[in-house]
């Protein structure tokens, strides 16, 4: 599966775009997080690797912006392994190992749409980098090698 960050502007946010695409392409799309209101929406979704191109094309046809989600970035050399972030993570992407070091799992992290841990780090070792809409172009998408799970 590949993770995609979908953004819907104010003018299309009331349309059932993801549902339409699921029905039309018969592709399972797994919504991981969603922040939607009348002003627009930001959805983190997983799509099968092989169906990615046509899903992206269908989303764009309907006016959505598609980009690769930037996950949370952890500067390990700054981290003091206090663990303040551990209890805030809703998906257990942050844990303590046997050595009591804080371990961050990129696979489990739902990325910048959550960011619950970011403002809890006392040494500012965690960053959520929101990607600009224009950052993703077709050529970049083609190079994606999503982690198989």
């Amino acid at each position: 599966m590949v993770r995609l960050l979908l953004r819907f502007g104010e003018e299309i946010v009331d349309q059932p775009i993801v549902s339409e695409i699921i029905l039309e392409l018969k592709v399972p799309i797994n919504i991981i997080t969603a922040l939607v209101n009348s002003k627009g929406g930001e959805v983190l979704a997983e799509v099968p690797q092989e169906a990615m191109d046509k899903v992206v094309a269908a989303l764009r046809k309907r006016g959505a912006t598609v980009s690769l989600p930037k996950l949370i970035e952890v500067e390990t050399e700054k981290c003091i392994s206090c663990g303040s972030c551990v209890s805030l993570c809703p998906v257990e992407a942050i844990t303590l190992d046997n050595e009591l070091s804080v371990v961050f799992s990129k696979e489990k992290c739902v990325g910048s749409t959550c960011s619950a841990c970011v403002d809890a780090c006392p040494v500012k070792a965690i960053k959520s980098v929101k990607q600009n809409n224009h950052e993703l172009i077709n050529s970049r998408l083609k190079g994606v090698t999503g982690k198989k799970r």
Binding site: S81, G83, L100
Partner: peptide, 23 residues
């Protein structure tokens, strides 16, 4: 252990001090 119980509620708990550095 990472979790405490208050009443019948299980709550995830994390440390603010670093046990790794304390060691």
């Amino acid at each position: 252990s990472g979790a405490i119980t208050v009443g019948d509620k299980k709550i995830k708990v994390s440390s603010l001090s670093s046990l790794k550095t304390a060691r």
